[in-house]
Simulated scan of single mutants.
Amino acid sequence: MDEPERWRQMPSAPKDGSRILVTVRSSEQGPAEVDVAYWSHGDRFSGEGWRASDSAPGCIIEYAEPELKCWMPMPSANFGRAAAPSPWQGDDAQQLDGSGI
């Protein structure tokens, strides 16, 4: 988390319940967008997986792995003046975290 303003590949996202920013892929339901999500280990309402942070018991918003393109840590508390990050718009995985060369 040394570079908080960089999108990263989803397999490297923390699964400890901490909230992160995610790029939700565009679909027939709308364009790509940024959401706040966390990994849930499951409970009586739903199984293990990614959930939107505004989920509530009885109204859980879950994301399937393929719906999420990439992630970044939540910005620091002094984020107020800066604009929110835009969803990742580049080519998939090769451009996230470097080219892999």
Score class of each variant (00 low, 15 high):
1 M>H: 05
2 D>V: 08
2 D>Q: 13
6 R>D: 03
6 R>F: 00
7 W>E: 09
8 R>Q: 06
9 Q>Y: 01
11 P>I: 04
11 P>R: 02
12 S>C: 00
12 S>N: 04
13 A>F: 06
14 P>I: 08
16 D>M: 07
18 S>T: 15
18 S>A: 15
23 T>H: 03
24 V>Y: 00
25 R>N: 08
25 R>F: 03
26 S>G: 12
28 E>A: 12
29 Q>C: 06
30 G>L: 11
31 P>V: 13
35 D>A: 12
35 D>F: 02
36 V>T: 13
39 W>N: 12
40 S>Q: 05
40 S>C: 11
42 G>A: 14
43 D>I: 03
45 F>R: 07
46 S>D: 08
48 E>L: 03
48 E>F: 00
49 G>N: 11
51 R>T: 03
52 A>G: 11
55 S>L: 02
56 A>N: 06
60 I>R: 15
61 I>T: 15
63 Y>M: 01
63 Y>R: 06
63 Y>H: 10
65 E>W: 08
66 P>Y: 09
70 C>N: 04
71 W>E: 04
73 P>C: 08
73 P>T: 13
74 M>P: 01
74 M>A: 13
75 P>A: 15
75 P>S: 14
78 N>A: 11
79 F>I: 13
80 G>H: 12
81 R>P: 05
81 R>K: 09
82 A>P: 00
84 A>F: 11
85 P>L: 13
88 W>P: 05
88 W>Y: 15
93 A>V: 08
96 L>W: 00
97 D>M: 10
97 D>Q: 13
99 S>C: 05
99 S>V: 02
101 I>L: 13
